[in-house]
């Protein structure tokens, strides 16, 4: 059975094709102002890569911020449920997953699991404090690519202590740090520590339950991962392609619904 999971995030849309629990292809594109278009484009891409057509797809589940806006989904589920499904499917070499930390573009979330079932979760407040969007803005001010941040921060010997996770306030804080000639690596490392503190606070709110699985686009940044491990004192597991975990979960849920509806 072939199913598709589409995760329409505030920054990126991730689409994935699944055949009998094997990933056939993945695609990622910017969501921008038109979630439906982003879904269409990534859908075409995954189909092309897997040499399939729409008729081959048994079921489509959409998730993420734009889950209700697309025109061709069979069902919509929230990213919390989809993420948990994807994470528990991938599993963790350090033991069964107790906590998932997901750092996305607009939302950061922490999910608490018991026997692979969600028992509790928290999400950040309505602003983008300490999310991927926050890093994107800061990278822009510092004149580096988002992807470079992680490697650069690892070179820091003396991370700057930042006070704000608010995107607007942090922006002015960074500008003044640049004026004080603080090293770029140290500023970036400081930013990562700020995000890590905020995420760790959310984890502690639910109680630290090991093993911890780290997903979302933010998990690709080794600087954040290191800062978060330091903050929590626990090793984190980051899967391959952490940005597709939620889309994978959606595709898995699609398989379940498809077999149920037959």
């Amino acid at each position: 059975m072939i199913t598709v999971g589409i995760d329409i995030g505030s920054v990126a849309t991730k689409t994935l094709i699944l055949k009998d629990n094997n990933i056939l292809s993945t695609a990622l594109g910017p969501t921008k102002a038109d979630p439906n278009l982003a879904a269409e484009l990534t859908m075409e891409e995954v189909l092309r890569n897997a040499s399939l057509s729409r008729d081959d797809i048994a079921y489509v589940v959409s998730t993420g911020y734009g889950r209700r806006t697309i025109g061709f989904g069979d069902k919509a589920v929230t990213e919390i449920t989809a993420n948990a499904r994807g994470s528990t499917f991938l599993g963790c070499p350090y033991g069964s997953i107790g906590t998932i930390i997901d750092l996305g573009g607009q939302d950061s979330k922490v999910i608490s699991l018991e026997d692979d079932c969600i028992v509790d979760f928290v999400m950040n407040d309505k602003c983008s404090a300490g999310t991927g969007r926050f890093l994107e803005v800061m990278a822009h001010i510092l004149g580096v690519d988002l992807e470079e941040l992680g490697e650069l921060s690892l070179k820091s010997k003396n991370p700057v202590k930042l006070n704000s996770t608010c995107t607007v306030f942090a922006e002015s804080e960074i500008i003044s740090l640049i004026a004080q000639r603080k090293g770029r690596e140290d500023i970036i490392a400081g930013l990562h520590e700020t995000i890590a503190r905020k995420l760790a606070g959310m984890v502690r709110q639910l109680g630290i339950r090991e093993a911890i699985f780290f997903s979302g686009g933010g998990a690709k940044n080794p600087g954040i991962r290191k800062a978060l491990e330091n903050e929590l004192g626990v090793r984190l597991y980051v899967p391959k392609e952490p940005e597709f975990v939620t889309a994978l979960g959606a595709a898995l849920i699609a398989s379940e619904f498809s077999s149920k509806s037959k």
Partner: peptide, 17 residues
């Protein structure tokens, strides 16, 4: 929309439980 996501996720969790 953000509240909707939280509420829907909460309901999905509750239903599964």
């Amino acid at each position: 929309e953000q509240i909707r996501t939280r509420i829907e996720a909460f309901l999905e969790m509750t239903k599964t439980k």
